[in-house]
Design a protein around this nucleic acid. Structure first.
Length: 323
DNA sequence: GCACAGGTAGATT
DNA sequence: AATCTACCTGTG
């Protein structure tokens, strides 16, 4: 249960620091390594958590990150050797551990995945891989990923974060209730609303979340999903081409959003989202100037193979860093 | 003031 | 079928 821990002390550690070392927090589980995660740099960790895959992670002053997905909250940080460590609200850490391993797709070492990309015959890809060792594709909840990318049309990452944050605080169920945790991460006071919950929200209230013309898409998608129970879960289980075609039936979901949802929310590595950054990257480094998005997507899937979406993420990171 | 932003849908060639 | 535009709204 949430919120059943005593709050009379009001602080993380009544005992205070011992000989200069910070006392362990009563609210957070101890830091522990994330099994089989690749060594990372701070820059690559930032690219994974704040590079446009997910929109609910925040970097803190000490360099650690805090974020949420589904009903889970976690902190992440790098140990001295670059290994990733995690910690969760103590009351829920037992459930968060396995959930995080799935979210991180920890069973698939990034190094192995990247090695199966055609970098040996693609000098630019080789360069992008070398620049971001450990970069990986998250395996986020399908429905939340759909919501995030329905917000993404013609918006920058900062603004997508703002929209999802408002949706959560106004229409999602409570997440962090312990005052000490809430004080650390007020933006995680609520989880994202489910599609069932969104179906009950009036379009005017969605507009008030700064969604603009996306409010109509989200409202339409929510109503459609409410009328078709089980449809989303079935779609997630379909092979890539069928899943993409089905997602595109939803209002506001075109080729790019569908590919992002399947790549970041369903682990479909063959999805190759084509956005303005990738259009620029393919024009600059692959001689595809003037190509249309569907042509670029086809080129990407054939040139990069079954893990084209992973290649896309490296190219995307390279392009943003050198822009 | 005005162009532009990690697109999509609908109208118009 | 391919190409153009409007769509909300914050940011520079």
């Amino acid at each position: 249960m949430i919120g059943d821990r005593g709050q009379s002390a009001g602080g993380p550690s009544p005992a205070g620091p011992v000989r200069g070392r910070p006392a362990p927090s009563l609210m957070w589980s101890p830091w522990q390594p994330l099994a089989s995660a690749d060594p990372l740099t701070a820059a690559v960790l930032a690219e994974i958590l704040d590079g446009g895959q997910a929109f609910r992670w925040h970097c803190r002053a000490d360099g650690s990150w805090i974020g949420a997905w589904d009903s889970h909250v976690a902190r992440l940080r790098l140990a001295g050797d670059g290994r990733l460590e995690w910690s969760a609200p103590a009351a829920r850490a037992a459930a968060t551990g396995p959930a995080l391993a799935r979210y991180w797709d920890a069973g698939n070492p990034a190094r192995l995945l990247a090695d199966s990309l055609p970098w040996r015959s693609d000098a630019h890809l080789a360069r992008a891989l070398a620049a971001h060792p450990g970069l990986r594709i998250l395996r986020q909840p399908f429905g939340e990923t759909l919501l995030g990318f329905l917000c993404s049309a013609a918006k920058q990452i900062v603004q997508i974060r703002q929209m999802t944050s408002l949706l959560a605080s106004r229409h999602g169920r409570p997440l962090l209730t312990e005052p000490a945790l809430l004080a650390e991460a007020p933006f995680l006071s609520h989880r994202l609303p489910t599609w069932e919950e969104l179906a009950e929200v009036a379009e005017a209230d969605l507009l008030a979340c700064r969604l603009g013309f996306r409010a109509r898409y989200i409202r339409g998608t929510a109503r459609w999903l409410a009328a078709h129970p089980g449809w989303l879960a079935e779609t997630e289980a379909l092979p890539y081409p069928e899943a993409k075609a089905r997602l595109a039936e939803l209002p506001g979901v075109g080729p790019k959003v569908a590919d992002c949802v399947l790549l970041f929310g369903a682990g479909r590595m063959e999805a190759f989202p084509v956005d303005v950054w990738i259009i620029a990257a393919m024009a600059r480094h692959y001689g595809l100037a003037g190509w249309k998005p569907p042509q670029i997507a086809h080129f990407g899937r054939t040139h990069f193979g079954p893990l084209a979406g992973l290649a896309q993420q490296y190219l995307f990171a390279w392009e943003r860093r050198t822009a």
